[in-house]
Design a binder for these strands. Sequence first.
RNA 1: GGCCACGUGGCGGAAUGGUUACGCAGAGGACUGCAAAUCCUUGUAUACCGGUUCGAUUCCGGUCGUGGCCUCCA
Length: 453
Amino acid sequence: MPLQIYDTFSNEKKLFEPIDPSNVRMYVCGPTVYDFPHVGNARPVIVFDLLFRLLRRIYGNDNVTYVRNITDVDDKIITAASENNEDIKSLTERTIKFFHDDADYIGALKPTFEPKATDYINDMIDIISSLIEKDYAYVSEDNVLFSASKFSKYGQLSGKNLEEMIAGSRVEVESFKRSSSDFVLWKPSKSSEPGWDSPWGKGRPGWHIECSAMSEKLLGKNFDIHGGGQDLIFPHHENEIAQSECANNEKFANFWLHNGFVNVEGNKMSKSEGNFVTVNQLKQKYQGEVIRLAMISTHYRQPLNWTENNLIECKKTLDKWYQLISENNFSFDNEKISSEVINALEDDLNTPKAISVLHQLYKDCKSNDRNTVETFLSSANFLGMLMHTSSEWLSWGKEKLSIDEKQIELLISERKSARDNGNFDKADKIRNDLEHKGILLEDNEGKTTWRFK
RNA sequence: GGCCACGUGGCGGAAUGGUUACGCAGAGGACUGCAAAUCCUUGUAUACCGGUUCGAUUCCGGUCGUGGCCUCCA
């Protein structure tokens, strides 16, 4: 089945055809590094990781270039740094490390390139200069602004039209803008703020220009896929198109992909609402694969309601799956990945369907051979799950235990003799006491094993 | 106010112009001293009103509801 993906620009599911099958190019907007990533930030990391995996499978591991940028210059960073009383560099470097830890934790492969905005300031200045030269941009009070009305396609990605936007504008037009829809390419920096020398004085880039610069530098003027969260459609991606296409006279990205939001109690999870859960907080209670499964159990374009219940359910599923592979040393085999799983993903990343195939494969494993189990395992691995051994999985969180293993073994044998003597009250008390400490005892085929709750 | 998306069982969540996947929970059973885990069986749903059609949950129109964007956001 050929790969089909939903393109936001044309609002339809389309057959994906790469510009160059020997170098399929994808750019995804990454984090602005000023704080711990929350679950909403993690969604595109996982969604586009899956697309990356799928593209690599279809076109070959060496034939896909995945760029996920890091925004390390931004007003929020400046504000956060001054609130923490630390310098910007130390804030961004620390936050990048948090981000990498979290991305690893949820099983995301490393992108091919992870450019930082501050390394591309000169490229941004070049684009801005060319936009001024072509009269798409103008200088006003030390700012450089893009004149949205000069780009006839402005609004096409987000389905807006300029006049309505200007009419419905809810924010006051800043004095240096000719029109409310014009946006900043370059702005002046105060002496306390980070700044770079430019033809328009010491300043820093506007938010959108970095992606135009970095994508062009690393992927070329025209590339295959540009992705990010739905909240970036407008204005961020709309503005990127305007800048890049006006500067280059060439089509920017061929496909636009946007993931839906993560909701909490029906409302969008966001930093400004304060209703967020960070990946770092979840690490205390759940393995990364639990977060990953919870994330991909909803189709990427649908809103995803984040609940504890869902996490518990996903953990149970993974516990069950890990039990199946505990018996032998099953191994991953690229050739054994279920074609049904691939088909599901090739249909606009239908992960819920892919998961239902895993459930079916799990059932098939019962009555079948090693080969079936390896198909199950390989398929799960392809989705970034069952990457650990069963014992690693089951002993997860051991260090947080308030009781040591020898003691548990001791209690198990105490319980055994109680049971042998028919003293079930005592036996049950031992089991219950351990359960209160988060240890579950399981009696199977005459043997008692334990695991974490 | 403008634009857009969505509304499937108790919950999560796919799909489809003609028997509505799958998972969790629930119920019943096997196993167990009792549980747990596992296995087997199983009930339950397409917001509302019209239209098109032999047939609509699916297509079209309207109503209601929810959410998003229009301002920083993944």
